[in-house]
């Protein structure tokens, strides 16, 4: 992150894009780098916009990362990355503010795409919402594939053996489970406050 060339937003965009394209093709290490760098950028983006709601920032970073993951197939490698990420971040920010009925609290205009790459914030705060607890509320056919494949790092085949599900059911369980998790976040945010 701190190499001199990394400070240039154009290069940052190019690197993020290359990682995401590699991830779409199945490169998990590139994907990890992508999500780490993106998390820092999202944190900077939300901190600036939520100066009066600082406690919401980390929850929103997590929610946006999950959204990017669940919709990662909608990124078209022929298009620039910044508008795509920006649109997702903005959508999640507006959605969260609407849930809270506090649209007026946005401290910055939302449509500035250019500067958002400029100010990464790698230092995570404490999240208020516990995704682990929400994960535990998913039905078994979604929760178990996520626990084995995504938390314990077992292969799809091993998970299928252990759970008695078919391999495609394991993959679908992970996919639907993470989408359901995003839906739980929206639902729990409605109830919480």
């Amino acid at each position: 992150m701190n190499r001199p060339d990394a400070a240039d937003p154009t290069q940052r965009e190019a690197r993020l894009r290359a990682w995401l394209v590699a991830a779409q093709a199945g490169d998990a290490r590139a994907y990890h780098r992508f999500l780490e760098a993106l998390g820092a950028l999202l944190r900077g983006f939300f901190r600036r916009r939520l100066a009066r709601m600082p406690d919401e920032v980390e929850d929103l970073v997590q929610e946006a990362l999950l959204a990017v993951h669940n919709q990662r197939h909608t990124y078209d490698a022929a298009q620039p990355l910044t508008p795509w990420v920006h649109a997702i971040a903005r959508y999640k920010l507006v959605d969260m503010l609407r849930r809270h009925g506090r649209q007026a609290l946005v401290t910055d205009p939302l449509d500035d795409e250019v500067e958002w790459l400029a100010d990464p914030q790698p230092q995570a705060q404490e999240a208020r919402r516990d995704l682990g607890r929400l994960l535990a509320t998913l039905p078994d056919k979604q929760r178990l594939p996520i626990v084995h494949v995504k938390l314990e790092g077992l292969s799809v085949a091993e998970t299928a053996q252990r759970t008695g599900l078919s391999e495609s059911a394991v993959k679908i369980g992970v996919h639907r489970g993470l989408k359901a998790l995003a839906a739980r976040i929206r639902g729990s945010a409605d109830e919480d406050r």
Binding site: A23, Q24, A25, G26, D27, A28, R29, Y31, H32, L35, E36, G39, E58, V61, Q62, L65, L66, H69, R72, H73, T74, Y75, D76, A77, A124, A127, D130, L131, G132, L135, I146, V149, K150, L151, G153, S155, V156, K171, V174, L178
Partner: peptide
């Protein structure tokens, strides 16, 4: 769950996604 743990979770296992599937 910390954000780093979430990132580990999301990036673990098969991560491929076909960008043409939705279209």
């Amino acid at each position: 769950m910390k954000t780093d743990e979430l990132i580990d979770l999301l990036a673990r296992g098969p991560v491929a996604a076909d960008p043409r599937a939705a279209g």
